[in-house]
Computed example of a mutant assay.
Amino acid sequence: MSEIFIRKQEIEDGKTDELREWIDDLYGEAVADEQGVKEIWGEESLHTISLFIEHAADANYFVWYLEADSMEQLIEAREASTHPLHEVEDAMMGEVLVDPTEAGEFEPLMHGVSADRPDQFSIQQLSDPSR
Score class of each variant (00 low, 15 high):
30 A>I: 06
123 I>Q: 03
63 V>N: 03
44 E>W: 04
6 I>W: 08
75 I>D: 14
112 G>P: 07
76 E>L: 10
12 E>P: 03
77 A>C: 04
23 I>E: 01
60 N>I: 03
12 E>V: 13
55 H>F: 08
61 Y>L: 01
2 S>N: 14
101 T>R: 12
4 I>M: 13
96 V>I: 07
95 E>D: 15
95 E>I: 02
2 S>V: 13
76 E>A: 14
33 D>A: 01
55 H>L: 06
16 T>L: 02
130 S>N: 13
99 D>F: 07
43 E>V: 04
87 E>F: 02
121 F>S: 02
47 H>D: 09
58 D>R: 03
90 D>L: 11
115 A>Y: 11
50 S>T: 10
35 Q>S: 07
26 L>Y: 05
67 E>S: 07
14 G>R: 01
99 D>T: 06
29 E>S: 10
51 L>C: 09
8 K>L: 09
35 Q>W: 02
114 S>R: 12
13 D>W: 08
14 G>C: 05
63 V>C: 05
112 G>T: 13
69 D>H: 06
15 K>H: 04
98 V>S: 04
35 Q>C: 01
8 K>G: 05
104 G>D: 09
123 I>W: 00
88 V>M: 07
124 Q>Y: 06
82 T>P: 00
119 D>H: 07
111 H>M: 15
101 T>L: 13
70 S>F: 03
85 L>P: 03
66 L>P: 02
120 Q>H: 08
27 Y>E: 06
94 G>T: 03
98 V>C: 04
15 K>F: 04
121 F>D: 01
32 A>P: 01
55 H>P: 00
8 K>N: 10
71 M>R: 08
126 L>N: 12
79 E>A: 15
1 M>V: 12
104 G>A: 11
100 P>I: 11
114 S>N: 14
68 A>W: 00
127 S>R: 11
48 T>I: 14
20 R>H: 07
97 L>M: 05
104 G>I: 10
44 E>F: 04
5 F>W: 11
78 R>K: 13
34 E>M: 01
50 S>K: 15
14 G>I: 05
